[in-house]
Amino acid sequence: MKKRMTAIFLTAAMTVVMMTGCGSKEGTTESGGDKGTGDSYTVGIQQFAEHGSLDNCREGFIKGLEEEGIVKGENLTLEIKNAMADTATNAQIADGFASDKVDMICAIATPSAQSAYNAAMDKEIPVIYTAVTDPVAAELADKDGNPVGEITGTSDKLPVEEQLKMIRALLPEAKKLGIMYTTSEANSVSAIEEYQLLAGDYGFELIEKGITQTADVALAADDLLEQVDCMTNLTDNTVVASLPTILEKANEKGIPVFGSEIEQVKIGCLAAEGIDYIALGKQTGKMAAQVLKGEKKASDIPYEIITEPGFYVNNKVAENLKIEIPADLTEQAIESFDEISE
């Protein structure tokens, strides 16, 4: 009796599992996502977390494919999954795409790229990543920038030197530059190292403040703002998510805060020499199109970076802080904002 119950239960459990497995496969055949048909594709997008920049990457990626004639709903089936910053879910998403045998995985952010590559390497599914700061450190590319396998993409490495040059131009008197970062974010740690290396060249003394979680932001901001003349941001997920807290405290003290990309300038950072994540996504989408169409193999394309960062400025913030933006910089600005959006 007991054994029979176990058997019944296990069979039921297995059936459920099998059914869902088959269900998704049917889905792909309906939309004609088979590899054999040639001009119709199924792409799995695996995004690590919900985050303004990463969302922009995804939108850009889809646009990039579209510009190359691979259009969602026509010859492209998209499966978009978000791991919500959970490592275990992230692994399962990658395994899911690999077992669905999608034509390509687009991985957004480093952990996604690593687990997508891990799941796809034996199944010969190409992986295109974006928003990976350092593909070499992540072991997705070798020291010369060539892919380690069927994986390539774009890097969102911060233009540190341009940022320092821009801050110096806006604040000729500033001496102490503060940066807050999360000690557990590999991208931030490598960006901090680059700032340490270059800050001296532009006459800045770098004061960094490491935090471990969102709850530390307010205290760390109070402490840091006591010591610095200005602050700049990285693309640190935790810090960027709590940016309003930092901005409010900085505004009280009249300390300018610089951003690292457009979204941060929109919500009240003074200016940024930053990456346009939509453009980055587009660039990635175009690389993906080449691979999908079979023009090139992912392993033959070295990873790319955006070579020319764009200047973004918020005039309203400048006015509040009584900072004059030099005319030559204003002219260069890709986008300038006259108000602070909440």
């Binding site: 599992v17 869902t20 497995g21 919900e50 919500m84 399962q92 998403i93 899911g96």
Partner: peptide, 20 residues
């Protein structure tokens, strides 16, 4: 295994935001 199967089923069939 059952727990992971639940997660996998949720991942396969629903919006990622609804997964948890």
């Amino acid at each position: 295994v059952i727990y992971k199967a639940c997660v996998a089923i949720a991942l396969q069939n629903f919006e990622p935001q609804a997964m948890k």
